[in-house]
Write a protein that binds this DNA or RNA. Structure first.
Lengths: 400, 400
DNA sequence: TGCACTTTGGCAACAGCGTTGCTTAAGTGG
DNA sequence: CCACTTAAGCAACGCTGTTGCCAAAGTGCA
């Protein structure tokens, strides 16, 4: 029942609008982006040009935003383009997998500046693992001139159930030693930086959110809404990261996205979780007997369920098994989905493979640490007049 | 890519906070609620007491809020309790089903003031159906003294695929005449009132959202987050309404909640949608052969999939078939879910049956029309300091 | 009964947000 | 070269929630 504290005051208003502008600047900065003008920022946010001028002036004074040349001629004074000062701040992204450690250093726009990978057995004692992580992060930061004092924080992505809010691991399958370990705070103390802990699949989903370079062909988010998709990760397990209306959906216990343990066959084989007919068990069995196409088609059935339940715009695939034959997976998953989504939802849902490949989780982890800067939540809507008096309006329950 | 316009200005800020206060007043008003004091409003919203005083003063001047006695003695001046002036405004809720029309008139707090039901064949021509709907709404409004000029709008809940944003029906299964019909605008014109169109399952889910009277036992939303649940409706079909973090999840095309067409058996019977193994086909077949408990257990398997994917807090059941034996359904669904959610998510998920019974959809439809008044979206969080300067913060992608 | 104390809640002045009206800057095109 | 167009900053402003203060309205002990 406790809805939390969500009253808004002027500093919150300012933060919200600043984050909104920064978010748009980021999408205009990533990849080969040339920047975005103040007026376009005003159009996209709904703020007045003057308000955008003030906000961008503050950001420029803080060194977070630079001018980047002129826009196309329009018959009058050309628009001045703005973009993020990419190297003004950095964030570290850590992918702590069962047998491997990957660390990336990302700039303000999320671009990877440096990346390092090390073999690492997650079964080793916690102190040892933490020292390896902290060491590789420090090494990566030191290798980039100017990054040393400018790292905003670190994102840490791990497999298995965990609690994002508390920063604590639950049970990493097969590795009982990590149960309940406060990984976030332990790393934060060693690094002297804020750390955000999340599931690997959630991190990967963040990396796939279109920050400019990666919007899937044909995927059109609905009117006024953010992007919605599922990132399906098939590696040593099968999980998903869900982005709904442009925001990661974790669930209250960081339990969302347990895609692999949906039941799709009443009398299927017994899964490692103890139940029958889990999609993960069927899928991995198919992979195990070399039937990659069969695994992909099973994945497609699960993906079709996801589309039916959540009305997402697109599906993105990743994980080692998928990356071993990306074309086949994209093709077979789509083939398995099409008849179901066409008949049930009347549309074809685009299926792609995450372009960042094996580094997608680490890149997403860095975005976890950058996320507080780039908000996207609305404060509300224009006031509504009720019986002649302006009373109120808000996004509330209804969205149209 | 178009994130929509979400910049916030002072009127938006005011609307947001006013809606927040109204929402808390509503939860304190429904049922046997005695009201809520200004100071508690301040604590719950995070606003200062003075800000709450100003907001409630405006609402009292508008006639939307009344004083309602004193709070418990605390050793000083007792708090003055406030509550919604329930009869200050009304909203109509329309449940247009295949064979029946139900209209309720709800007061500001969502309480049902009057309700009427009529047999109505949805296969009749559109004009005839609309006239019946408008007629029953008018009749219901006229029957309540003081309601005539005070109706904020009408919510209209229908079965089958439709577009909430456009207010247009897609194809109502078996009734091709309604395909593409702009039902919302047609009714709005006849009534001279704003109309909101939504799926019956979404409306029912709104009615189940705890506005005070209906919080399921044992359901604890996660820290800082809103309630999350799935409302599963088993009647002539099988569908769901999803509430995630306190907000209805519709999807960009109002397609979310197609719970019945998830595949749970690779070689199952052919469903009406043309695919094999849909949960709806299996479930309805079980009902058809009198195996109600079997249908309930199948429902439980689907519900467990929902919990795995979305990490929801609870499951609520409704629909004619469920209401024919509520106890059995609650028991068997829970029994089928428990082994799956215990092993996969480590918890038991409460299962209840919607208390509003057959009227739940119409009640929820009325809430659709009231929703714009009672927002629950946050503007952001307190500012975050980055390298010594206050830059920004927002809810953004990460929620902890 | 009276008085000290506690707590509520309004009044008034204020800081800071985006907005408005206007001016200046910097181009294009005849 | 000049009229015109468009971009973007300056200054004044309205309105938001906030702060400091004070009156109102209780409780509880002497």
């Amino acid at each position: 029942m406790n809805r939390g504290i969500s009253g808004a005051n002027l500093p919150a208003l300012r933060s919200h609008n600043t984050a909104l502008v920064l978010g748009l600047l980021r999408t205009a900065t990533v990849g080969a982006g040339t920047g975005i003008s103040r007026l376009e920022l005003a159009e996209r946010t709904g703020l007045t040009p003057q308000a955008v001028s003030k906000i961008t002036a503050r950001l420029r004074a803080d060194g977070l935003v630079d001018e980047a040349g002129r826009g196309a001629p329009t018959g009058g004074k050309p628009r001045t383009l703005l973009r993020l000062a990419r190297r003004a701040r950095y964030a570290a992204g850590v992918h702590l997998d069962r047998d491997e450690l990957t660390v990336v250093l990302a700039d303000l726009a999320g671009g990877v500046v440096d990346a390092r990978t090390l073999p690492l057995d997650l079964g080793r004692p916690a102190g040892e693992v933490l020292e390896a992580v902290a060491g590789l992060v420090r090494e990566t930061v030191r290798a980039t001139p100017g990054a040393d004092g400018a790292v905003l924080g670190a994102g840490l992505a791990c497999p298995g159930p965990l609690d994002h809010a508390a920063g604590v691991l639950h049970r990493v399958t097969g590795l009982p030693g990590w149960e309940g370990y406060p990984l976030r705070d332990a790393l934060a103390e060693r690094l002297g930086l804020p750390v955000v802990l999340d599931k690997d699949t959630n991190a990967a989903a963040l990396a796939v959110l279109p920050t400019g370079e990666d919007a899937a062909a044909g995927a059109e988010p609905g009117p006024g809404a953010g992007d919605s998709f599922g990132y399906l990760h098939l590696g040593t397990g099968l999980g998903a990261g869900l982005v709904l209306d442009g925001a990661l959906h974790r669930g209250a216990r960081t339990g969302a996205g347990e895609f692999g343990h949906q039941a799709v066959a009443p009398d299927g084989p017994v899964c490692a979780c103890g139940n029958r007919g889990c999609l993960e068990a069927l899928c991995l069995a198919a992979v195990g007997r070399g039937d990659t196409a069969g695994a992909a088609r099973l994945l497609g059935v699960g993906a079709a369920n996801l589309v039916s339940l959540l009305d997402i715009d697109r599906v993105v695939l990743g994980g080692r098994t998928v990356l071993a034959d990306p074309g086949l997976f994209a093709r077979e998953v789509a083939a398995a989905m099409d008849p179901r989504t066409l008949r049930a939802a009347g549309r074809t849902v685009p299926v792609t493979v995450a372009t960042a490949g094996r580094r997608v989780v680490a890149e997403g982890a860095a975005l976890l640490a950058l996320a507080p800067l780039f908000g996207q939540t609305a404060v509300g809507r224009p006031p509504v007049r009720v019986r002649g008096r302006t009373v109120t309006a808000s996004r509330g329950d209804i969205s149209g």
